[in-house]
């Protein structure tokens, strides 16, 4: 089972959901942030099966906005294909000015009988959005619009 590397914050963004996520590598913090986002919508991430697998490829010249795009992609797929998704593997590499993400995500169609659903995430906001390198690795702060 994957280690939980995020926590929700009570003291900011009352109507929305704020979280902090972390990891020893930049890939890990992306994976933690993806789980934190999905966990807002599904109580128990362990209930998400593996019947679907998709590849996600994204690039951006700013690493933090690559995270923004990645989380947005998961939210897009939740509405456009009614999929709940988790990361299977993910790599981020630099190519000149750009950071390039290639990820494989797995999941399955939303099923209220199987997945204990919470609240829908409308969007990722850029209010206080932050991705930073620390002594221990990487940390992200995100506020999701609910």
């Amino acid at each position: 089972m994957r280690k939980v590397a995020y926590r929700y914050r009570d003291d900011i963004a009352l109507a929305d959901v704020a979280f902090e996520a972390w990891g020893t590598s930049v890939e890990e913090v992306f994976i933690s942030a993806a789980d934190a986002t999905m966990n807002v919508m599904v109580e128990d991430l362990g209930t998400i099966g593996r019947s679907e697998e998709l590849t996600i490829e994204l690039e951006h010249d700013q690493l933090d906005l690559l995270l923004f795009s990645f989380l947005n992609e998961l939210i897009f797929l939740k509405d456009a294909r009614q999929l709940l998704l988790r990361v299977k593997s993910l790599s981020i590499r630099r190519a000149g000015e750009k950071s390039i993400l290639k990820g494989v995500v797995y999941g399955e169609g939303i099923d209220p009988q199987k997945h204990p659903l919470r609240v829908d995430v409308k969007a990722v906001t850029l209010h206080r959005f932050n991705l930073r390198q620390t002594d221990a690795g990487w940390e992200a702060s995100v506020i999701l619009d609910i």
Binding site: R9, I12, L14, A15, V17, V119, I146
Partner: peptide, 8 residues
């Protein structure tokens, strides 16, 4: 208008 976070 909210006065309390969702988590709280």
């Amino acid at each position: 208008g909210r006065t309390m976070s969702r988590h709280q």
